[in-house]
Amino acid sequence: MEEVEFEILRILEENAKMSPEEISEIVGISVDGVREIISKFEDEGIILKYKTIVDWEKIHSDFIYAIIDVKVSLTREKGYDDIAKRIAKFPEVHAVRLVSGEYDFQVVIRGKSLKEVAFFVAEKISTIPEVKDTVTHFVLRTYKEEGVTLFTDEEDRRLAFVP
């Protein structure tokens, strides 16, 4: 991949609202060129989706997040990929990662209440035949999400003119 393509990805990863016009001014290729590269990335599934990072806690939303450690036993027929896909297809599941360590998967669940999340794990995850064990950690507070800190304790204190 060319450097300019990398640069476009880095810019969009930081700010998905950056327009093709602005990106063109920053990277120095034509607006059409930028559009072409972006739609190529979209077609190829390199850019998957444009999302917004919301600080739900600020509006006292009722969403509950939980991180579930899942231990599985593999069989000849069912490998990690098969089990992961099965878990990932539930809309309640926010993220699924294969991880090293004592447990095999780290699954992030989003639900409306403690009860809903607990029942979901009990009914949908633990009952998968290959799942041997789960540990549920409810998220009490999020401080950083997707590289963005969800708190501000620093402000611009610079003087208006500095030679």
């Binding site: 610079r158 003087l159 208006a160 003119f161 500095v162 030679p163």
Partner: peptide
Amino acid sequence: RFFDLVSGREDIISLGVGE
């Protein structure tokens, strides 16, 4: 001298900051 013109004003965007 420009300090006086901008001091205390929040609505100014400063491109005068050399840091």
